[in-house]
Structure formats: C-alpha cells, structure tokens
C-alpha cells in the first residue's frame, strides 16, 4: 500500500500545531508521550497501513510553538477534542502513549462522540497509591541514565551522541523535556480526579503494556487502569519497556490491528 506522508501545520483555537499525517483510511490519532514524536519512527509507517495516521506534536513539543493558553493536560484534552471536531473526524481510533495516554484518557472521559476505540499504551495520569507512595518515578530528580533504565528495556537504544545530532534535533529533545515539565510537574503525571472519571469511557478500550516496563508496571498501574475502565482489556508486549512503539513496533501495531479487526467484525 502506498502511503502518503505529509507534515502539516494546523491551527486549532489559535494554537498552532505541527501535525504528522500518514496514510489513508479511517482516522488513527496518535498522541505521543514525553519522548515526543520522531517522524522517522517505524511504527508510524506500520500504523499508516491501517488508516490515516494523524500525529500532532503537543504545544511545546517538537516544533509546535508554546501556547500561552495551554499549560495543563486538561487544556490539551480540550485542544484535541476541538481538533477532532474541526477536522470533522468520525470513528477515530485514539492512541496515546504514556503522557499521551493520559491526554487520551482525559479526552475520553469528556467525550467519546467521535471515537471508535481507545488504545492506551502504558498510560499515566491516575493516582493509585497513598500519598506517600510515588506511583511514577520522579524523572526530574533521577540521574538521566537511571531514567532511561526505567523506561527502556534496552537503554542503549535510547542513548544518543549529541555530537552526531543537529542543533535542530537537540533543540527538539530539549523542548520535549521542557514541555513535559510544563504539563506533568504538578500534580506529577496525574490528575487526582481522573481515576474516578474513567468509568465514563464507553468505547472499547485496549491497554498495552511492555512486560519489561520498569517505569510503571502492568501488574500494578496497568491493572488499576484496566479496573477503572469498564470492559477494558490489558495486554502485554514482550521484550518492551515503557515505550513499546519504539522497542517493539511490529508487536504494537499488530495488537492495534487485532483490536481494530475485532471491532470491525
């Protein structure tokens, strides 16, 4: 299947967004996590085989400019609901990874009108432990190497040599970190109210989790998520950490395809 790739700029509610578009067919919206969106990542190409992938960079990430009106995940959720409405997308499959999973969940508790299904890949966003238990390791207080060890099954693949990257690529890396701090600093990677609202999600929901996710575990965090969303399924992906779309893109896309296939049937 010949896929068409385009990188476009969309303006939603005066917020300018860099959006990566790929493929054709039913809309698949990908919301990236704190790792940002790498246009060359193979999983995007694979996903595009199953529909039209729309992958915006959240304001402050990638090349999307900062937006003074957007500084919370709440703002992002409404921004993307508006994006779905303005693009008149219907029966969209919404996929979010980590921080993006949190955004997707926030969208879904507000409205599933334009959604056909929801795929949350190791989503963050809920609080499950008591006030003295940190559900999510503090990436801002840990040595960078330790953060990679927690988030990747194979940290080697995520380490990079700054001297081999262009200024633009380094700027994107720096901006991704800054934007993550903007949205996730406090409360730390969660909305205390989200868990009690997850029951509102009425569309089919698939939770995907890397088996080797040392950042937030499927058994604990994933199970809590699953239990809060009616009818949700939790599936794990072998040999993958917190970002399965980077470490096991084929497996991830296969699960998504199966999920879509199930629904189509």
């Amino acid at each position: 299947m010949a896929s068409t790739t385009h990188q476009a700029w969309l303006t939603v509610n005066n917020v300018r967004l860099e959006v990566l578009g790929r493929g054709q067919g039913p809309p698949i919206v990908w919301l990236h996590g704190e790792d940002g969106l790498d246009p060359s990542a193979p999983f995007l190409e694979m996903l595009a085989a199953h529909g039209q992938v729309l992958a915006p960079s959240h304001p402050g990430f990638g090349h999307s400019p900062d937006a003074s009106s957007v500084d919370t995940v709440d703002d992002l959720a409404y921004l993307y609901l508006d994006l779905l409405a303005e693009g008149n997308l219907r029966d969209a499959v919404l996929i979010g990874s980590s921080l993006g999973g949190w955004i997707a969940a926030e969208m879904a508790v507000r409205s599933t009108e334009r959604l056909r299904g929801l795929v949350l890949v190791a989503p963050l966003g809920i609080k499950i432990g008591d006030r003295e238990s940190r559900d999510i390791p503090d990436i801002f207080a840990l040595p960078p190497a330790e953060v990679l060890r927690l988030q990747y099954r194979d940290p080697e693949r995520a380490t990079f040599d700054p001297s081999k990257l262009s200024d633009d690529q380094l700027t994107v890396i720096a901006r991704n970190r800054e934007a993550t701090a903007l949205y996730a600093w406090e409360p730390y990677f969660h909305n205390p109210k989200l868990r009690q609202r997850l029951h509102r999600i009425k569309v089919p929901t698939l939770l995907l989790w890397g088996v080797d996710d040392r950042f937030v575990s499927a058994a604990n965090y994933g199970a809590a998520y699953r239990d809060s969303i009616p009818g949700a399924r939790l599936e794990t992906i072998d040999r993958a950490g917190h970002f399965p779309h980077l470490e096991q893109p084929e497996a991830l896309v296969e699960r998504v395809r199966a999920f879509l296939g199930d629904r189509r049937a």
Binding site: L170, T180, L182
Partner: peptide
Amino acid sequence: QFTSPPGYHPTASTVNTMK
C-alpha cells in the same frame, strides 16, 4: 538533574550544554 531542571535555562543554552 538538579542543576538543569527542564525549562529553567533557556532552550538554546540547554542545547549548548548538551553539546
């Protein structure tokens, strides 16, 4: 991680530090 919390320094200087 404590000397350079993300966003504290201007992006350009963070990039320079990375280099």
